[in-house]
Simulated scan of single mutants.
Amino acid sequence: MAIVAYTDGSSLGNPGPGGYGLILLETEKMVKKEISQGFRLTTNNRMELMAVCVALETLKFTKTEITIFTDSKYVVDAVEKRWVFGWVKKGFKGKKNEDLWRRFLEVHKIHNVKFQWVKGHAGNVWNERADQLAVGAANNPANFKIDSYFEMNQNEE
Score class of each variant (00 low, 15 high):
Ala2His: 12
Val4Arg: 07
Ala5Gly: 05
Thr7Gln: 02
Asp8Met: 05
Asp8Ala: 09
Asp8Phe: 10
Ser11Glu: 02
Leu12Ala: 00
Gly13Pro: 06
Gly16Leu: 07
Pro17Thr: 05
Tyr20Glu: 00
Gly21Val: 02
Gly21Met: 00
Ile23Leu: 12
Leu25Pro: 04
Glu26Asp: 12
Lys29Asp: 12
Lys29Arg: 15
Met30Trp: 05
Lys33Trp: 05
Asn44Ser: 15
Asn44Phe: 07
Asn45Thr: 06
Arg46Asn: 08
Met47Gly: 08
Leu49Asp: 10
Leu49Gln: 09
Met50Pro: 01
Met50Ile: 06
Val52Gly: 08
Glu57His: 01
Lys63Leu: 09
Glu65Val: 14
Ile68Ala: 07
Ser72Thr: 07
Asp77Pro: 06
Arg82Asp: 11
Arg82Lys: 15
Val84Met: 05
Val88Phe: 04
Lys90Val: 03
Gly91Ala: 07
Trp101Asp: 11
Arg102Glu: 10
Arg102Thr: 08
Arg102Lys: 15
Phe104Val: 11
Leu105Ala: 11
His108Asp: 11
Ile110Trp: 04
Asn112Arg: 15
Lys114Thr: 13
Gln116Asn: 05
Gln116Met: 13
Lys119Trp: 09
Gly120Gln: 03
His121Tyr: 10
Ala122Gln: 10
Gly123Glu: 00
Asn124Ala: 03
Ala130Leu: 03
Asp131Val: 04
Leu133Cys: 04
Ala137Ile: 02
Asn143Met: 08
Ile146Tyr: 00
Asn155Val: 01
Glu156Trp: 09
